[in-house]
Design a protein around this nucleic acid. Structure first.
Lengths: 229, 229
DNA sequence: ATTACTTAGTGTAAAAATTACACACTATAT
DNA sequence: ATATAGTGTGTAATTTTTACACTAAGTAAT
């Protein structure tokens, strides 16, 4: 990424678009840069790929260093490499996205040193981003919009046990449109990858909803068949 | 790519999976390597990204150098960068695919010098490939299988004027299954991106089929709506 | 205990899309 | 004229999608 600038002909980095969901809003993790260029700007977190790492390993390491999280579903989605994208030299960057549930049990570990601070900012109100990071983010959002229609990625944003209303909420946020409650339930249940639990939601001041869990086993068996929203 | 090996810490290259269609079979372009490592093996054509090129420009240049073709629909789809993928050092490569119609008017220009020869080989009978090129190819095929369901890429494999039977043939080859003729026609026509011409097929020894053309303008207007096979 | 409030949870009918399926037509070659 | 090979077309049954509104269940306040 951009915070370290060795004097090489070209640098290969990974930038991460970390989508977080706190139960209400979709957010992304941004850092405020402490160095030129783009000092004081917000930027996507990223880093340089290590010599002996695979790309996925590198992405996992970077995610870990920035958030303390492991075992997160993460996927590379596009390489950005315009010669002018970095003012100080050729930096080709590979973009990954990850989906993370926020709040709840463990708080995210504070971030590495190269930034003034890091913050989860709601995607509805993002600041101007450094470099071509707006473009990287845009493409990432586009990507998960498509992917959520065919892959069970929404569950990554939710706690292990969730209600159908919460799940619907995630779909609505990512797709950017309201869905019909009855039709949503009919369809999502018909995929057969949800396990209805005997438990109910707790701590709400109204009728508690049934909790569900994503059933990875049954999903694995479906392989080949396509989910389609 | 792999034929040139400057003594740098890491090298960034582009490899191309060029799918070609000759009216009968799906083929890909392979080169026979003339140098170690993997001397005499078949490999995907590729090259190193130039210092002042964007990634897409670089891919276009490489395609042009290898085939003499310009203006081909081409898209990056995955970066491969396992530390061990190249025996002589770290080479991160970005894979692009392109779809090309073979035969007909202009023959492909012969290939650069770094290979003994280049050949279009049917995908049903591929040799062992150098490096991790089998993996790159597999992922590329997977990619176009998905993409052909939502994007009008099949037309890139056909001449400008084509029959519905030829179009169906392309879909069947890529999807790897037979389709019903009447249903296929109903659906593909319903998308509204085909222009029926007044011309008929020529040179066949049976009833000549009507020719169609892909209507880019009407497709552009559809943007937002999804084609779905 | 009654009431007010808030979200959970459910069914159906109409419309649209998908599937399965077979034969007559047309051009050419002999 | 006849054989041949691929073109081009319609419909009925099934499945999927859409649109739509009320009762049930639990909590909170009185």
């Amino acid at each position: 990424m951009e915070q370290i600038l060795p004097h090489l002909d070209s640098v290969f980095s990974i930038d991460c678009v970390l989508f977080g969901f706190d139960g209400k809003e979709l957010k992304i993790l941004l850092i405020e840069r402490n160095e030129e260029p783009f000092k004081d700007w917000w930027a996507l977190p990223g880093n340089i790929v290590g010599a002996d790492e695979s790309l996925d390993q590198s992405a996992s390491r970077i995610l870990y260093e920035l958030t303390g999280l492991r075992g997160i579903y993460m996927e590379q989605y596009y390489a950005f490499g315009d010669p002018g994208r970095h003012p100080q030299g050729r930096v080709i960057t590979l973009a990954y996205y990850a989906l993370i549930r926020l709040g709840g049990d463990k708080e995210l570990r504070p971030i590495s040193t190269y930034a003034k601070r890091a913050n989860w900012l709601p995607i509805t109100d993002l600041p101007k981003l450094a470099f071509d990071h707006q473009k990287i983010y845009d493409k990432g959002l586009e990507k998960i919009k498509r992917r959520i229609k065919h892959q069970p990625i929404a569950f990554e944003l939710l706690p292990e046990k969730f209600t159908l209303t919460q799940l619907q909420h995630v779909y609505e946020l990512i797709l950017g449109k309201k869905l019909d409650k009855r039709n949503f339930r009919k369809k999502i249940v018909s995929f057969g990858v949800l396990k209805e639990l005997d438990e109910k939601q707790k701590g709400v001041s109204y009728r508690a909803a049934t909790l569900y869990r994503f059933d990875k086993r049954r999903y694995a068996k479906l392989f080949g068949k396509e989910i389609s929203f």
